[in-house]
Design a protein around this nucleic acid. Sequence first.
DNA 1: GTGAAAGCGCTAACAT
DNA 2: ATGTTAGCGCTTTCAC
Lengths: 343, 343
Amino acid sequence: MAVTIKDVAKKANVAASTVSRVISDSPRISLDTKKRVKKAMKELGYHPNVNARNLAVRSSQAIGVIMPSSADKALQNPFFPEILRGIGTSAHETDYSLYISTGGNEEQIYEEVQRMVYGNRVDGIILLYSKVSDSVLDFLVDSNFPFVVVGKPYEYESRVTYVDNNNISASKDITNHLIDLGHQHIAFIGGSTDLVVTVDRLTGYQAAIKNANLPNNQDYIVHAEFLKSGGRKAVERLFSLEMPPTAMVIADDIISLGVLNMIEELGLDCPEDVSIASFNNLYLSEITRPPLTTVDINIYTLGAQAAKCLIEKAKDKNEPAKRIIVPYEIKYRNSVRDIRSLQ
Amino acid sequence: MAVTIKDVAKKANVAASTVSRVISDSPRISLDTKKRVKKAMKELGYHPNVNARNLAVRSSQAIGVIMPSSADKALQNPFFPEILRGIGTSAHETDYSLYISTGGNEEQIYEEVQRMVYGNRVDGIILLYSKVSDSVLDFLVDSNFPFVVVGKPYEYESRVTYVDNNNISASKDITNHLIDLGHQHIAFIGGSTDLVVTVDRLTGYQAAIKNANLPNNQDYIVHAEFLKSGGRKAVERLFSLEMPPTAMVIADDIISLGVLNMIEELGLDCPEDVSIASFNNLYLSEITRPPLTTVDINIYTLGAQAAKCLIEKAKDKNEPAKRIIVPYEIKYRNSVRDIRSLQ
DNA sequence: GTGAAAGCGCTAACAT
DNA sequence: ATGTTAGCGCTTTCAC
């Protein structure tokens, strides 16, 4: 059996409670005994048992991270390790641990969340996705458990704490960038329409189109899955239109990768024949051909902030709902072409 | 305060221990009381407190997953979410939860592992990387804590359980494939030389070269970081050699992505001027241009097996050290060219 | 400044 | 088949 607080107490000739106080660095312990106790701990190789501690204080110094359903190929998006890194850093600073759910289907995710919440496994939860009508979100809201969502919640917007980019504005900006460079036929390729982020980016795109008095062409809006097969047809259709787009706003760098591939298969060239701009600034967007013009959404910061907010909230349940908007920045690279001179 | 076992006991007119037995589905409880207790649990909305349970049984039904240092850009490799998915599935089946460490630097990782082990947070640990002289590995071996490594451990090979591909053989195979197609000038581009997987893949490559009586040209072996900047020079040097390679074996699909980019920058074409073959069969290797010939290492299975082994080991400490070799399969795509006709 | 004792919620002998 | 009791290792009043 491992060495406990009692063993330390005995060795240091104090009571267990004193050892406990030393651990929590209580101010009313004489420097002398503090030293003695610490020495004993070291000599015995003492390490506190978190379960016991958690039981006593009814908390767990852990935060739960909920990934989207793995049915989604989207899980292979490097977005996730990156945001995990952000969350991890914040968590580590405050000595929190990470509990994660790599849910199978939605039901399993729901179960896992329940286990986390009811089982006192975690002090709070970070939702790594935001989609329409999500039972997990409903549950979290109902149970009044501390949580924050990365992205904008579909419902309860004013009541839940979330950290997000201003995706509408970002999408407007990037679309305007295309417009400024002379593009008038701009398509939008989004991911799953269930995701709030897709909706927001579409909205921003549409706003920019409208604002520039360009026609609102429904044929220009397609939703590709991350999978090659899914997107293929969509993109082919786009380029068989009477007036094919000269530029595209794409909701995710990973989708761009696929699109780039299809563009070439169709015998076209990016950016010569068609420009593309997307979102996330994944590491790989720098090393595609051409490198992608993309909106850097600061994934790491998104994660770090989410963890920070959550921990605040977990510590003080009365912390009000907040919304943190992480700034974005357009990275200009070579996937976009200036076609003003052609007009 | 949450509802406890006592509340349920009272409501069902039984002792707490009976409730406990119902929870663990003990065979010697009458069907009648079982029903009564379950009804009471439902009515009260009872959920067991895992901390209390863990404290009592000295286990946690959780497994710790250690990611590599985030100093590494490698963390953005989709390899990680994918293997997490595999681990998650296995874990979920047996009702284990996942604790993860997204370590900052090596020291922080070490700390986190200590917390996991000594704090009784997890019943076992999965190491998601294997590198030379790793203090974490040393610690785990010394402390006799259940763990498994994904990849081949640098040391203690016979004593630790690990799940890996036969990377040497895989690398030999893929190199031979290149040789069979007429390539005689084959370079190797690896990731960090600290990683055992890099070493193994290099070894396999060298074996194939030697076996085919091709010259062992040291200039053909380079180690690129995942970063664009790092690899750039290496690749440039490769193609400024007197006899530039006609093919390359690359240790990771993600590196291939960067190499593909450089190849084009140098005004070359893949596979026309140079063939490439790599490892992992990440989802994105299908959607690059050209799609990559790559070794499918079955990442998901690697994870699932690792979790399975670990759980066995956690349940029975006497479980002997095992090595699980997950089969690989070469995916033939268009990044490799047959140049036999040219000779 | 420190100790004694109760209790966090659950499990596991040991009774009966 | 079920109840009683004693912990698991820690924190936290309440004393002194």
